[in-house]
Design a protein around this nucleic acid. Structure first.
Lengths: 207, 207
DNA sequence: ACCTGAACACCGTTCAAGT
DNA sequence: ACCTGAACACCGTTCAAGT
């Protein structure tokens, strides 16, 4: 009767999951403090209070830790995209859409600890880059659907291009915004929204 | 009379410089083919046709090779900025300025071999990141001067913010543009110019 | 059942020995 | 005067031995 083992197993599972979480949060912190180059597996293990061998019990290799951190961050973006999708009804104005979507994305960028080094890693490490690029495709797919619903265009190529531009411009500027002081941040966000709105208005007027 | 050695030294110097160039171009090519992770010093040395020891005669360490590649690329940007600065006279229109500056920057991005992995390295490796960030400051200084001359603003903080936004948006979108097919590239550049122009027009109208 | 850390393979860098 | 490549230090990963 395996079920009888459950009470015994559960704490084990929980402790294992907690240790996994600890490794991830320690790595995220170290990424911001010591940087990518000095981030050794032994350092991660020691700071987590375990041995290297145990570290490799939870993760098959060093990059799988960074992979898990990346996945977590991309998941947060997915939640934001869902919210943006739900908000963007047929009759919503471009201004409202832009304000909501940029603000919602800003939250994701603000909440993630050590997002700057993580983003750099994602574009530099092949394994993470692949994950990131696949995820970009998903974003572009969702945004295309939304832009179509908002009557910005119906041409798949145009929708895909606008979505990619929306993604890259938003990404680049939000990374600046989160490291800016309060007043500057407000202006930067206002500039970003203005640019995105111009982009979408122009596309819509051509449609 | 040391001067008598010059004819003897010159060919040596030249051969040394040529070897240095070979190492740099081999590294740039390898960066695009094998990627950052498999770019070992022994591989660079072998592909250049020299030993590791000789490689270290020309460069003090691995990153100094990538540092030299980065400097070369940043130099090309400086030439472009000079051209943009010379083009941007007091009475030039925002449309002409935007068209010229984006087109001129596009050339720099198009001409550089292996620019994508190089850009990733520059943001990921601390030594290169520092070089890149210092250079960004120079770009922002020059662009601020230009934006001021074009009567877009006279507030240093506003000028600096607009310059940074100009830089980041242009950078992000040009990286997409250079990997796009002809027709798509045209549309992407048109979108970029439209966004930049909206940004500058808005700032100017507030001035 | 889970953990440890010495041991192995590999990469950046050096330097004694070669031409 | 310049080049070579074995040797060293260090990091990612494994696995025999411990509890």
């Amino acid at each position: 009767m395996p079920r009888i083992l459950a009470p015994r197993n559960l704490p084990m599972q929980q402790r294992a999951l907690e240790k996994r979480e600890m490794i991830l949060s320690v790595t995220a912190k170290l990424l911001g403090t010591v940087g990518q180059d000095d981030l050794t597996t032994i350092l991660i293990a020691n700071k987590t209070g375990i041995s290297v061998g145990t570290l490799y019990h939870y993760f098959p290799n060093k990059y799988s830790i960074l992979f898990a951190l990346s996945q977590r961050w991309l998941n947060e973006i997915d939640y934001a995209l869902d919210d943006i999708d739900n908000f963007s009804l047929k009759d919503v104005s471009l201004r409202d859409f832009t304000n909501y979507s940029i603000d919602r994305m800003l939250n994701v960028y603000t909440d993630q600890e050590g997002i700057l080094p993580l983003v750099q890693l994602m574009s530099g490490v092949p394994e993470l880059k692949e994950l990131d690029e696949e995820h970009d495709e998903k974003i572009i797919f969702t945004m295309s659907k939304i832009f179509n619903r908002l009557s910005i265009s119906s041409n798949p190529l145009t929708l895909s291009r606008l979505s990619q531009t929306w993604l890259e411009v938003t990404h680049a500027i939000l990374l600046i915004a989160i490291t800016s002081k309060k007043d500057d941040k407000k202006s930067i966000l206002s500039d970003l929204k203005h640019m995105i709105m111009s982009l979408l208005e122009k596309a819509k007027s051509n449609f």
